[in-house]
Design a binder for these strands. Sequence first.
DNA 1: AATACAATAT
DNA 2: TATATTGTAT
Length: 304
Amino acid sequence: MREEDSNWFAKWEDELPSPDELIPLSQSLITTDLALAFDIRNPHQIAVAPLPSQFPQSTANSSAEFDSTELGGGGEGGSGGGSGAGDEPARTLKRPRLVWTPQLHKRFVDAVAHLGIKNAVPKTIMQLMSVDGLTRENVASHLQKYRLYLKRMQGISSNGGGVGVNNSPAALAAVSVDPATDHLFASSPVPAHFLHPSRPNSDHFLPFLPVAAMQNHHQMAVVGPGAHHHQLQQQFRHFGTSPPNGQFEHPFMRQSQQQVQRTGTPVHIRNGSSVVPLPCVEDLESATATNGRKVLTLFPNGDD
DNA sequence: AATACAATAT
DNA sequence: TATATTGTAT
């Protein structure tokens, strides 16, 4: 019996399609509409470019990158020429729904945490997150829901009875009536001060860092060594919902030219204002139970 | 004008 | 349900 299984597996493995066979498939995944949505003139290039030099075992979806292709991000104004007549389909057409992955949500929470509730408004959050392609509307929508979530949490935590401050995410999540509903939100710990709205003016957090200083230094080296070649961080957006017509999942890279984000590498800053993108905190495995440890301590002020 | 926010739509 | 879009106030 075991032998059969082994045989079966070997055979199965042997007959797996080679990468060359898989690549063309990814091309077909990019529909014309999709290409238009990203203002991509020749879809062919995308099909060729996508392969990251080293992709993990891409299970089903291909993790594609848009090389230096002009996406919505980057040089917004397009080439200096102005090309006035320009029709920008990307701006007109509807973009696919953003899927808030735990990673993305984590960045969101971190951003909100470091802004403080007061300053945590969509635009600012968006800037802090500095995720390419992320729109203010995206954040606004998410923020709206997140606030509702926080509200529920507050209610629950206050109701708990005088057990000190047991606001551990796990506990709160446990109390939550619909775990499934809050799955995403529960995946990321809620900073304590979120639950204490009645905290008198505590100027704990410094809103922003003086960007100018940092820009001088190129990038703020959060993590020196920089030799960490870790995995690809997945802050992708998936184009879920594939009706018969079929829009498939589509990986979405952040920051134009950066190929992969290394641990703690803070990407480019393109803000005219004073918002410093959060460093990339790579979380360990899925933050699951048993690990009551705080992982959020990579920021310069490390105030949390 | 821009944008935050809540309500509503998909 | 999750996210988008719309409407309104600031």
